[in-house]
Nucleic acid binder design. Structure first.
Lengths: 245, 245
DNA sequence: GAGTGGTCTAGACCACTGC
DNA sequence: CAGTGGTCTAGACCACTCG
């Protein structure tokens, strides 16, 4: 491992090159979500750099929530099985009272061909196979979110409504354990819309009620889009919470 | 500077103690927004620690956007005059096309006494003097956001509609230069609501249209709330953009 | 060239976990 | 107790900015 020299136009410091190597190992599945990765000393030896350099690479990956450090134990691959990860990707809090567990109610799951919008969002070619899932999220047995989820068909080939219904874990947790796809980051675009008839019925609000429309694209390692979804959120008892800094 | 010993229940590493000292200096106004702070070497000498320890303290403050490092120049106090800071606190992007500059149109500015809600949000006592500002934000001469802003009256004593109208800078930039208050972070709670008559007129949308309601509490150093605002966003041509990780 | 932040190293020691 | 990450130091050198 040698650093790119300063005159190189693609100069990047050593610790960033190490970071890329770690990312590649994560992407390749060498270390699975939830698993312990080698110690800093071991990695330093493997890459022929000092421990401090490995440390800085891991620092950045931990800051991006790809790795989780636990003092005395080691460094682990982040996993959606961790309940703390759940609210990182569902920024919904009750207007009053404590946060409660969500219950997912799968409604439908079918195969289709990517239209122009889905193809663009998922970076697939037009007509590529996709899977569409519709489901409700309930809090205290009341429907709050109606999701329509578009997935690349090849990656999630074995996904069925039955599988979704049997699964006790969160959706992203299922993607991880069953399809080897870990969602790493996402972009959300939020608008206010009026409930159409079918959404209103499912969410048990009057037709025409204002709802949040939350469009999300989720990415796995290497910024590859792996999910496009549109959620309709009823904000009668909940709100979308965001922290700015 | 000595570290708290490990048996101490309030153990905190040296670099965090340095961070607190830097925060205190920022809060006290020793270094003003936009200004250069002393070099790492100087600070290390002042606090009697190594440069690496100062560096780690500054690292965290830079990650929280309180300081900005510029290689070769030095470390600066973050400022809302920096145009990049603007979109950190207004996560609004056009549905299509490039991001455009916003224009603020102040509508009203009056004195009042804090009601129960404003008092709670701003951590003031009931009936404490507050200032209320109403203003529109326009993009390409079209109204997009209607804000109602509640400020503690004592801190923002000299604020008037005239001052707001004369000011060419952003609101937070004005707070900084004119009242010495720097907003450091904020919490937003987003819901979908229907436009009432007066909001609909100002935003030039039909009455009853769905709007985003964005409630924000902004904090200055030390997590002291300094602003409570409610914005109504028309999401016909724009959407609220958020990145999850 | 002087001064700043940025990188990299090596070594010592501390704090936490689990055997 | 051994092994892990966490802190702190000191020193060398690199990259960037500006006069």
């Amino acid at each position: 491992m040698r650093r790119a020299s300063s005159d190189s136009p693609t100069f990047s410091p050593l610790y960033r090159q190490i970071k890329e190597l770690l990312l590649k190992a994560l992407d390749s599945g060498e270390w699975q979500p939830g698993q312990l990765i080698p110690s800093e000393a071991e990695l330093a030896q493997r890459f022929n750099v000092s421990q401090g350099t490995v440390r800085k690479a891991i620092d950045e990956l931990a800051a991006e929530n790809l790795l989780v450090r636990r003092q005395g134990k080691g460094t682990f691959v982040a996993s959606h099985k961790d309940p703390r990860a759940f609210f990182r990707f569902l920024r919904l809090v009750p207007l009053s009272g404590e946060i409660e567990p969500a219950r997912s109610v799968p409604l439908e799951c079918w195969r289709a061909k990517a239209g122009p919008e889905a193809a663009r969002m998922l970076e697939l070619s037009l007509g590529a196979p996709i899977i569409i899932v519709r489901r409700l999220l309930e809090f205290s047995a009341k429907p709050v979110v109606l999701d329509e989820i578009y997935l690349p068909g090849e990656v999630f080939a074995g996904l069925t409504l039955e599988l979704l219904k049997e699964s006790q874990e969160s959706l992203y947790s299922l993607f991880e354990s069953r399809f080897g796809v870990r969602m790493v980051r996402a972009e959300e675009r939020i608008r206010a819309v009026s409930a159409d008839r079918s959404s209103a019925e499912l969410l048990r609000v009057p037709e025409g009620s204002p709802l949040l429309s939350v469009e999300r694209v989720s990415f796995t390692y290497g910024n590859r889009p792996m999910e496009w979804r549109r959620g309709l959120y009823s904000t009668i008892d909940h709100c979308y919470f965001n922290e700015l800094s």
